[in-house]
């Protein structure tokens, strides 16, 4: 039996889809959690994959990013992310 905790990956796992959506490398980008205000690089956040992808804050576990891919369409929900800092880090 695999527990939920063992299905937890990290933000490295969404580097590919984010590269495709944003056109730039995002795993080093600081993300601010809309729930608790923590700043963390995307690579340090918790990632769960199922039918879609859920990225959670590694401090308060709030959902920060949701991604669902279906065919050629992608839904990206960033409502749990207060900000993403792009550009050279």
């Amino acid at each position: 039996m695999t527990g939920v905790a063992e299905l937890r990956l990290d933000g490295n796992a969404v580097g590919g889809i984010m590269l495709e959506l944003f056109g730039i490398e995002l795993t080093v980008c600081p993300c601010v959690c809309a729930g608790c205000g923590a700043h963390e690089e995307l690579a340090r956040l918790d990632v769960y994959r199922g039918a879609g992808i859920v990225v959670r804050c590694c401090h308060c576990e709030a959902v920060m990013i949701r991604i669902v891919e279906a065919g050629e369409r992608t839904w990206l929900d960033l409502s749990g992310t207060a900000s993403l800092q792009l550009g050279p880090q």
Binding site: N12, L19, T27, V28, E41
Partner: peptide, 9 residues
């Protein structure tokens, strides 16, 4: 293939 990916690790 898609990549290379990653700037953190």
């Amino acid at each position: 293939v898609r990549g290379p990916i990653g700037g953190y690790f």
